[in-house]
């Protein structure tokens, strides 16, 4: 018995049942996905093999397959790790310190604020906010234009503001709630770093902290804070309030509750958020460009600086980029398990 041609064609284009696709559609879907897979992987592959090429292999036009088109060589790796040695390791260590410290600090501070915004009701008087801005502007004016020493001016302004807020401030009526605070925190992310980096540069110059890890850590913590608050808020809001109240009655303080109940239960969110912040801090370029010049130079600076020396030396550059990608991928793989396990706990919580 022969199947008529029309039926065959139709079978190619119709699904067998509700959950599967027509064979032709399946082919198209796979083709598209695989082509994007190539788009993603090929540049990384090229990068990887270039790090094992000799200059002659690069300059003679494209060679694609190691061992067949060219013989892999470790010369670039040796150069970066042995001959440059400390010149590579110092920025690398710098990056590790800055990225990890700022991630931990940022996630901690951000998680504090996110939790507080979920569970505690705030009322901030509009009048006090306006007064604070006026005091701040006044202080800046006094410091910049009248040359007052900044620690004195800041201290005087703080004292004056506290006095104001506790006396006149009490009579203000209109107040802002948690949503307004959240909006303000998140809206800070719209600020382009280039707007704030000049004063921050001057500030660190005054404090003598320019080109130090501390300066970079503090700045990175600040610029990534809005993201942490934004993401962690949703995770914390999903934790049943009963658990916290129960702990409260059992005798736990807010801080105890935060560290023994809320943080462990927020672990999947914490892992995902930390990974994102780590990536952002590890790859940050603009602020490092301004704040770190030599001693605290980070890896993106080192990579970017490759251009200036003796023309593009692709082999060295590839090594640097590969060793920059590696720790992030490893961390992601490590956290992946955490994220998955945490999610499982969350999904069937009692």
């Amino acid at each position: 018995m022969t199947i008529p041609e029309r039926t065959l064609l139709r079978r190619l284009f119709t699904a067998q049942d509700l959950t599967s696709m027509a064979p032709a559609a399946k082919v198209v879907v796979y083709a598209l996905l695989l082509s994007w897979l190539m788009v993603v992987l090929f540049p990384l592959y090229w990068l990887f093999i270039t790090s094992f090429k000799l200059p002659v292999h690069v300059n003679d036009g494209p060679d694609f397959l190691p061992f067949i088109d060219f013989k892999p060589s470790g010369h670039a790796w040796r150069y970066i790790f042995v001959e440059l040695g400390n010149d590579t390791l110092r920025p690398y260590l710098s990056s590790v310190i800055v990225a990890s410290c700022s991630t931990v600090l940022c996630v901690l501070i951000g998680a504090f604020a996110a939790y507080a915004l979920v569970r505690i009701q705030y009322r901030v008087k509009v009048g006090n906010v306006a007064a604070f801005l006026l005091f701040l502007a006044g202080t800046v004016y006094v410091i910049v234009n009248l040359g007052a020493p900044w620690p004195v001016a800041a201290a005087v302004a703080s004292v004056l503001f506290v006095l104001f807020a506790t006396s006149v401030g009490r009579s203000f009526q209109r107040s802002l709630g948690n949503d307004d605070i959240l909006f303000w925190i998140i809206s800070n992310r719209i600020l382009p770093p280039v707007v704030v980096v000049l004063p921050v540069y001057l500030m660190f110059q005054r404090l003598g902290l320019l080109d130090t890890h501390v300066a970079l850590i503090a700045t990175y913590t600040a610029i990534n804070l809005p993201i942490v608050v934004w993401l962690m808020r949703d995770f914390f809001a999903g934790i049943p309030v009963d658990l916290e109240e129960s702990a409260q009655i059992d005798g736990a303080s807010r801080f105890r509750i935060f560290f023994t109940i809320v943080l462990p239960l927020g672990r999947p969110g914490l892992a995902a958020t930390s990974l994102l912040i780590l990536i952002l801090a590890w790859n940050e370029y603009l602020l490092a460009l301004f704040i770190s010049t030599a001693d605290a130079q980070t890896m993106p600076m080192l990579v970017a600086a490759q251009n200036a020396t003796r023309g593009p030396q692709w082999w060295y550059m590839s090594v640097l980029i590969v060793i920059m990608i590696a720790p992030i991928v490893l961390t992601a793989a490590m956290l992946q398990r955490h994220i998955a396990r945490g999610l499982m706990v969350g999904a069937i919580k009692g």
Partner: peptide, 20 residues
Amino acid sequence: FILPAVLTLLAFALFPLLVS
């Protein structure tokens, strides 16, 4: 709980914004 975040943002966002 909220003070560290607010102070950080005041020092590294609001204050620089005004100075800028």
